[in-house]
Nucleic acid binder design. Structure first.
Lengths: 161, 161
DNA sequence: CTATTTAGGTCAGTCATATTGACTTAATTA
DNA sequence: TAATTAAGTCAATATGACTGACCTAAATAG
C-alpha cells in the first residue's frame, strides 16, 4: 500500500507526508488556543467563553439561534456559559423586533476582553504570515476554507457578509 | 486603529482579514475532527482515544513518558483512557530494557481502528490538497509549522525523525 | 381566529476530558 | 547508599458537552 502509493503519488501527496499535515494541524491548533486559554483561566473562564465572546464581537446583535448555528452546540450547553458572561457583564442582552428573539452584544468590559484575547491570536498570525508571499497566504486560507464542510462554509460566509 | 491598520498593512494583513484566518482555523479544525469522532462514539471512545491511537501508531514502542510529552496532558488523564484501550485490546503493553519503562504498541485490532480513523483524515486532506500547486501545499505546511511553539516544534521533529 | 411553529429557557441526569495534590513502588543512576 | 526517574493510584474538582422532557410567549399559516 505504501509502496504502491509512493509509486502513484508525487512526494508531497504521500500518506507519510499527509500524516505530517494531520500532526501540524494538531500541534498548531493546540498552540493557537493556548495563549487565550491562560488569560481566560484567570477569570475562571474556558474556551467556550472565548468562542461566545468572539462571535458576539464579530456579529453584533446576534440572536441566540444564530449563535447556536455558528457554535454548533446545544442551547443547554450555551446557556450555562452565556449566563456567566451576562451575569459578569461581558455581554448584554436586549429584545429583538421579533419579540421572541434576543440580541446579544458585548459591553465595554466585553469588548476589552475580546480585544485582549483576539490580539494574542492576531499578532501570532501576523508574525507568522509576514514571512510569506501573498500567493502563499492566499493558498493557506483557501486550503483551510476547502477543509470546511459545505454547510459550515455557508456559516463562514454569513458571518463575513 | 482599523483605519491606521488598513493604511499601513497590505490587504491580506488587515486585522479583518487576519480574523478570517482565526475563523478558518476554528471551522476547519472542527470539521477535520468530526469524521473520526463519529466512529469513535460508536465504540464509546472520544478524541482522547484517537490521539493515543494515532501517536502509538506513529511511534511504535513509545513509552508512557514520551507519549505524555507529545500529548501534553497529565498522567492521571492519560491513565483512564489508555487503560480502556489496553483492556479492550487496541493497545498492548510490554516492558522496556529499562525495566521502569513501558512500551506501547497497537495490536492488529488497534491498527485496524487507527487505519480506519486516519483514512478519513488522510482522504480529506488529499481531496482538498489535490487542487493546489506543490508551492501552495508547501506554503500551507510551513505556515502551520511556524504556528507551533518552539518546544513543540522539537516534538514534531522527534516523532518524524 | 385557532393551530402550529419558532425562539428561548429550564430542570435533571450523565459523560468525557482534563486538572491539582498527595502518595507509592520499583528500577536506575550519581 | 541516596537521589532521581518512570509509572501508577486515590481523591476531589472543573469544564464542556450531551439527551430528554417540559414550559412560555410570540409569530405565522391555514
Amino acid at each position: 500500500m505504501t509502496d504502491l502509493n509512493s509509486l502513484l503519488s508525487p512526494f508531497f501527496l504521500n500518506d507519510k507526508e499527509i500524516r505530517k499535515v494531520i500532526e501540524l494541524l494538531f500541534f498548531s491548533y493546540r498552540d493557537f488556543t493556548s495563549g487565550p486559554d491562560k488569560i481566560l483561566a484567570k477569570l475562571n473562564f474556558g474556551r467556550a467563553h472565548h468562542r461566545i465572546i468572539y462571535f458576539v464581537g464579530k456579529k453584533n446583535n446576534i440572536t441566540i439561534k444564530d449563535l447556536l448555528l455558528v457554535l454548533q452546540i446545544t442551547k443547554q450547553s450555551l446557556s450555562r456559559v452565556l449566563n456567566q458572561l451576562v451575569n459578569e457583564k461581558f455581554i448584554i442582552v436586549s429584545t429583538g423586533i421579533d419579540k421572541r428573539t434576543k440580541k446579544l452584544s458585548l459591553t465595554e468590559k466585553g469588548k476589552k476582553l475580546e480585544n485582549q484575547l483576539s490580539t494574542i491570536q492576531i499578532d501570532k498570525i501576523k508574525r507568522v504570515i509576514n514571512k510569506y508571499s501573498e500567493e502563499n497566504i492566499n493558498g493557506f486560507k483557501e486550503i483551510l476554507y476547502d477543509m470546511i464542510e459545505t454547510d459550515n462554509k455557508k456559516t463562514f460566509q454569513q458571518i463575513n457578509d
